[in-house]
Simulated scan of single mutants.
Amino acid sequence: MKKVLLFSVFIVFWSSIFAQTDNESENSLFMDPAAIELRSKITIPPYSLDKVKALIAKIIPEEDKETTDAGINAISAVDFKKLSLREKFTYTMIHAELYAQNCAIPEYQTQVNKKIFGTLLDGFNESYWSQRQTDFLQENRDSVMKLIQESVVRSKRMGVNYKHAIVEINGWQMIPFITDYAKKTPGDKDALTLLLLLMKRGEYGEFIKSSSFKKLYGEQSNYYSYLNYNKENEALIISRALKYYEEKKSK
Protein backbone atom coordinates (compact mmCIF):
# COMPACT_ATOMS: atom_id res chain seq x y z
CA MET A 1 0.00 0.00 0.00
CA LYS A 2 2.82 2.36 0.89
CA LYS A 3 4.53 1.65 -2.44
CA VAL A 4 1.31 2.45 -4.32
CA LEU A 5 0.92 5.69 -2.37
CA LEU A 6 4.50 6.77 -3.01
CA PHE A 7 4.16 5.98 -6.71
CA SER A 8 0.95 8.03 -6.87
CA VAL A 9 2.67 10.99 -5.20
CA PHE A 10 5.55 10.67 -7.68
CA ILE A 11 3.16 10.73 -10.65
CA VAL A 12 1.24 13.74 -9.30
CA PHE A 13 4.50 15.61 -8.68
CA TRP A 14 5.88 15.11 -12.18
CA SER A 15 2.48 15.77 -13.75
CA SER A 16 2.43 19.15 -12.03
CA ILE A 17 5.96 19.87 -13.25
CA PHE A 18 5.16 19.08 -16.88
CA ALA A 19 1.93 21.07 -16.67
CA GLN A 20 4.06 24.18 -16.18
CA THR A 21 5.57 24.00 -19.65
CA ASP A 22 2.60 25.85 -21.17
CA ASN A 23 2.32 28.39 -18.35
CA GLU A 24 5.75 28.85 -16.84
CA SER A 25 5.94 30.08 -13.26
CA GLU A 26 8.84 31.80 -11.52
CA ASN A 27 9.87 28.45 -10.05
CA SER A 28 9.72 26.52 -13.31
CA LEU A 29 12.41 23.88 -13.83
CA PHE A 30 12.34 24.34 -17.60
CA MET A 31 14.73 26.52 -19.56
CA ASP A 32 13.58 29.14 -22.05
CA PRO A 33 15.10 28.29 -25.49
CA ALA A 34 14.15 31.65 -27.01
CA ALA A 35 15.83 33.52 -24.16
CA ILE A 36 18.95 31.37 -24.43
CA GLU A 37 19.13 32.06 -28.16
CA LEU A 38 18.79 35.80 -27.57
CA ARG A 39 21.47 35.84 -24.87
CA SER A 40 23.88 33.79 -27.02
CA LYS A 41 23.34 35.78 -30.23
CA ILE A 42 26.46 37.43 -31.67
CA THR A 43 26.77 40.63 -33.68
CA ILE A 44 28.39 40.19 -37.09
CA PRO A 45 30.67 43.07 -38.16
CA PRO A 46 30.46 44.14 -41.82
CA TYR A 47 34.17 44.74 -42.44
CA SER A 48 35.29 42.53 -45.38
CA LEU A 49 32.75 39.96 -44.25
CA ASP A 50 32.67 37.98 -47.51
CA LYS A 51 36.47 37.78 -47.61
CA VAL A 52 36.67 36.60 -44.01
CA LYS A 53 33.91 34.02 -44.49
CA ALA A 54 35.72 32.65 -47.55
CA LEU A 55 38.90 32.15 -45.52
CA ILE A 56 36.98 30.44 -42.73
CA ALA A 57 35.30 28.11 -45.23
CA LYS A 58 38.71 26.80 -46.31
CA ILE A 59 39.84 25.86 -42.81
CA ILE A 60 40.66 22.21 -42.14
CA PRO A 61 40.24 21.57 -38.39
CA GLU A 62 43.15 19.99 -36.55
CA GLU A 63 42.29 17.66 -33.68
CA ASP A 64 44.26 17.68 -30.46
CA LYS A 65 46.72 14.78 -30.48
CA GLU A 66 45.70 13.70 -26.98
CA THR A 67 41.92 13.91 -27.39
CA THR A 68 39.40 14.09 -30.22
CA ASP A 69 37.16 16.36 -28.14
CA ALA A 70 39.36 19.40 -28.66
CA GLY A 71 41.47 21.05 -31.31
CA ILE A 72 42.11 24.13 -33.38
CA ASN A 73 40.03 25.51 -36.21
CA ALA A 74 42.10 28.38 -37.58
CA ILE A 75 43.31 30.08 -40.72
CA SER A 76 47.06 29.95 -41.35
CA ALA A 77 49.46 32.33 -39.64
CA VAL A 78 50.25 33.83 -43.06
CA ASP A 79 46.60 34.53 -43.85
CA PHE A 80 45.98 35.93 -40.38
CA LYS A 81 48.94 38.28 -40.67
CA LYS A 82 47.72 39.57 -44.05
CA LEU A 83 44.37 40.65 -42.65
CA SER A 84 43.86 44.32 -41.89
CA LEU A 85 42.91 45.38 -38.36
CA ARG A 86 39.23 45.60 -39.26
CA GLU A 87 39.37 42.22 -41.01
CA LYS A 88 40.99 40.63 -37.97
CA PHE A 89 38.24 42.16 -35.88
CA THR A 90 35.56 40.63 -38.09
CA TYR A 91 37.36 37.27 -38.09
CA THR A 92 37.69 37.22 -34.29
CA MET A 93 34.12 38.34 -33.69
CA ILE A 94 32.55 35.62 -35.86
CA HIS A 95 35.01 32.76 -35.44
CA ALA A 96 36.70 31.35 -32.34
CA GLU A 97 39.73 29.23 -33.22
CA LEU A 98 39.77 26.75 -30.32
CA TYR A 99 37.11 24.14 -29.80
CA ALA A 100 36.45 21.72 -26.98
CA GLN A 101 33.45 19.48 -26.43
CA ASN A 102 31.50 20.66 -23.42
CA CYS A 103 29.02 18.28 -21.80
CA ALA A 104 27.55 20.90 -19.48
CA ILE A 105 23.87 20.76 -18.59
CA PRO A 106 21.78 23.14 -20.75
CA GLU A 107 21.43 26.59 -19.25
CA TYR A 108 18.86 26.84 -16.48
CA GLN A 109 17.25 30.06 -17.64
CA THR A 110 13.62 30.96 -17.07
CA GLN A 111 11.92 34.33 -16.68
CA VAL A 112 15.05 35.92 -18.16
CA ASN A 113 13.38 39.32 -18.42
CA LYS A 114 13.16 39.30 -14.62
CA LYS A 115 16.80 38.40 -13.97
CA ILE A 116 20.23 40.03 -14.16
CA PHE A 117 22.75 37.18 -14.45
CA GLY A 118 26.26 37.35 -13.08
CA THR A 119 27.78 35.69 -16.15
CA LEU A 120 27.44 35.86 -19.93
CA LEU A 121 26.76 32.89 -22.19
CA ASP A 122 29.62 31.64 -24.37
CA GLY A 123 28.22 32.57 -27.78
CA PHE A 124 30.52 30.37 -29.90
CA ASN A 125 28.98 26.94 -29.28
CA GLU A 126 31.84 25.13 -27.52
CA SER A 127 34.54 27.23 -29.17
CA TYR A 128 36.86 29.81 -27.63
CA TRP A 129 39.23 32.53 -28.75
CA SER A 130 42.83 31.43 -29.19
CA GLN A 131 45.82 33.18 -27.67
CA ARG A 132 46.56 35.07 -30.86
CA GLN A 133 42.96 36.27 -31.00
CA THR A 134 42.96 37.54 -27.41
CA ASP A 135 46.39 39.08 -28.03
CA PHE A 136 44.94 40.90 -31.03
CA LEU A 137 42.06 42.27 -28.97
CA GLN A 138 44.28 43.41 -26.12
CA GLU A 139 47.00 44.91 -28.31
CA ASN A 140 44.40 46.91 -30.24
CA ARG A 141 41.96 47.66 -27.41
CA ASP A 142 41.35 51.32 -28.36
CA SER A 143 40.52 50.38 -31.94
CA VAL A 144 38.42 47.41 -30.79
CA MET A 145 36.35 49.64 -28.49
CA LYS A 146 35.85 52.13 -31.31
CA LEU A 147 34.76 49.42 -33.78
CA ILE A 148 32.34 47.93 -31.25
CA GLN A 149 30.77 51.30 -30.59
CA GLU A 150 30.43 52.03 -34.31
CA SER A 151 28.79 48.65 -34.87
CA VAL A 152 26.39 48.93 -31.92
CA VAL A 153 25.28 52.42 -32.95
CA ARG A 154 24.64 51.11 -36.46
CA SER A 155 22.88 47.84 -35.55
CA LYS A 156 21.30 48.91 -32.24
CA ARG A 157 22.48 45.59 -30.80
CA MET A 158 25.44 44.49 -28.68
CA GLY A 159 25.98 40.78 -29.26
CA VAL A 160 27.47 38.46 -26.66
CA ASN A 161 30.73 38.37 -28.65
CA TYR A 162 31.10 42.14 -28.25
CA LYS A 163 30.37 41.88 -24.54
CA HIS A 164 33.02 39.17 -24.10
CA ALA A 165 35.52 41.27 -26.05
CA ILE A 166 34.90 44.25 -23.76
CA VAL A 167 35.50 42.09 -20.69
CA GLU A 168 38.60 40.53 -22.30
CA ILE A 169 40.22 43.93 -22.88
CA ASN A 170 38.87 45.35 -19.60
CA GLY A 171 37.14 48.11 -21.53
CA TRP A 172 36.04 50.20 -18.53
CA GLN A 173 36.29 53.31 -20.71
CA MET A 174 33.11 52.11 -22.44
CA ILE A 175 31.00 52.22 -19.28
CA PRO A 176 29.14 55.45 -20.21
CA PHE A 177 28.39 53.98 -23.65
CA ILE A 178 27.23 50.69 -22.12
CA THR A 179 24.96 52.41 -19.60
CA ASP A 180 23.41 54.49 -22.38
CA TYR A 181 22.89 51.33 -24.43
CA ALA A 182 21.34 49.54 -21.43
CA LYS A 183 18.81 52.34 -20.99
CA LYS A 184 17.90 52.35 -24.68
CA THR A 185 17.76 48.54 -24.94
CA PRO A 186 15.84 47.36 -21.86
CA GLY A 187 15.37 43.88 -23.31
CA ASP A 188 19.11 43.21 -23.17
CA LYS A 189 19.66 42.60 -19.46
CA ASP A 190 23.16 41.29 -20.26
CA ALA A 191 24.24 44.90 -20.73
CA LEU A 192 23.84 45.18 -16.96
CA THR A 193 25.73 41.90 -16.57
CA LEU A 194 28.55 43.44 -18.59
CA LEU A 195 28.74 46.38 -16.18
CA LEU A 196 28.89 43.95 -13.25
CA LEU A 197 31.72 41.99 -14.89
CA LEU A 198 33.74 45.15 -15.56
CA MET A 199 33.44 46.21 -11.92
CA LYS A 200 34.37 42.68 -10.83
CA ARG A 201 37.39 42.60 -13.12
CA GLY A 202 38.49 46.02 -11.86
CA GLU A 203 38.04 44.82 -8.27
CA TYR A 204 35.98 47.92 -7.53
CA GLY A 205 35.87 48.11 -3.73
CA GLU A 206 32.30 49.37 -3.33
CA PHE A 207 31.02 46.54 -5.52
CA ILE A 208 33.25 43.83 -4.02
CA LYS A 209 31.89 44.65 -0.55
CA SER A 210 28.26 44.71 -1.66
CA SER A 211 25.56 42.09 -1.07
CA SER A 212 25.11 41.94 -4.86
CA PHE A 213 28.69 40.75 -5.33
CA LYS A 214 28.28 38.11 -2.64
CA LYS A 215 25.13 36.79 -4.25
CA LEU A 216 26.60 36.71 -7.77
CA TYR A 217 30.21 35.74 -7.15
CA GLY A 218 30.48 34.61 -3.53
CA GLU A 219 31.11 31.11 -2.19
CA GLN A 220 27.46 30.09 -2.57
CA SER A 221 27.13 31.43 -6.12
CA ASN A 222 27.10 29.42 -9.35
CA TYR A 223 26.97 29.85 -13.13
CA TYR A 224 23.26 30.69 -12.94
CA SER A 225 23.34 33.16 -10.05
CA TYR A 226 21.32 36.29 -10.68
CA LEU A 227 19.82 39.41 -9.17
CA ASN A 228 16.12 40.09 -9.51
CA TYR A 229 15.51 42.66 -12.21
CA ASN A 230 13.74 45.78 -11.05
CA LYS A 231 14.24 49.49 -11.58
CA GLU A 232 16.01 49.84 -8.24
CA ASN A 233 18.65 47.20 -9.04
CA GLU A 234 19.09 48.57 -12.55
CA ALA A 235 19.63 52.10 -11.21
CA LEU A 236 22.04 50.83 -8.56
CA ILE A 237 24.17 48.92 -11.07
CA ILE A 238 24.32 51.86 -13.47
CA SER A 239 25.09 54.47 -10.80
CA ARG A 240 27.74 52.23 -9.23
CA ALA A 241 29.35 51.53 -12.62
CA LEU A 242 29.45 55.23 -13.50
CA LYS A 243 31.02 55.99 -10.12
CA TYR A 244 33.63 53.31 -10.80
CA TYR A 245 34.27 54.87 -14.23
CA GLU A 246 34.75 58.35 -12.76
CA GLU A 247 37.19 57.02 -10.16
CA LYS A 248 39.20 55.16 -12.81
CA LYS A 249 39.25 58.17 -15.10
CA SER A 250 40.51 60.47 -12.35
CA LYS A 251 43.58 58.33 -11.62
Rank of each mutant, 00 (worst) to 15 (best):
L194Q: 04
F124D: 02
L227I: 11
V4L: 08
T193M: 04
L83R: 00
N161G: 04
L49E: 11
Y223G: 07
L120I: 03
I36T: 07
I60W: 01
T179S: 15
P186H: 08
S155E: 12
Y223K: 14
S15M: 08
E168V: 04
R39S: 12
N170W: 03
S212K: 15
E66C: 02
I44M: 00
F7K: 08
L55Q: 01
M158S: 07
Q109D: 03
T67I: 02
L85W: 07
L55M: 14
S28H: 14
T119P: 02
F213C: 12
R141H: 11
Y108H: 05
L38K: 15
A70L: 04
T90Y: 01
M145A: 12
V78H: 14
Y217G: 06
F213H: 15
R154Q: 11
S210P: 05
D69H: 03
K189E: 07
N27H: 11
I72L: 14
P33K: 09
P46W: 03
K231D: 15
L227V: 12
P33L: 10
E150Y: 12
A235N: 14
F7L: 11
Y245L: 06
G123E: 02
S212A: 15
I169S: 01
K215Y: 01
P176N: 05
Y162A: 03
Y91S: 00
E246H: 12
F136Q: 02
W172A: 06
K88M: 09
S48A: 15
M93W: 01
L137Y: 00
F89H: 02
I166L: 08
F177L: 04
P106V: 09
I237E: 03
E219N: 08
L6W: 09
A165C: 03
Y204E: 10
N228C: 02
S16D: 04
L196S: 06
M174A: 11
A182Q: 05
A74N: 05
K82D: 13
E107C: 03
V160S: 01
K65W: 12
L5A: 08
K81M: 05
V153W: 13
D32Q: 13
P186F: 06
T119H: 14
S84T: 15
A182F: 01
L196K: 13
Y162H: 12
A191W: 01
V160P: 00
K251F: 10
S127K: 14
R154E: 12
Q20R: 08
Y226A: 11
K2G: 12
Y47S: 02
Y162D: 04
L195D: 07
S76N: 07
E66T: 10
F213E: 05
V160K: 03
K209W: 06
I17D: 06
P176C: 05
Q101R: 08
P46I: 05
G218I: 01
K65M: 12
K248T: 11
V167A: 10
K163L: 15
K189W: 00
D122I: 04
F80E: 01
C103L: 11
Q101K: 07
K146P: 04
R240K: 12
S15Q: 03
E150P: 00
I208W: 09
K249W: 02
E168I: 04
L196H: 10
K3Q: 09
I148M: 09
R157W: 11
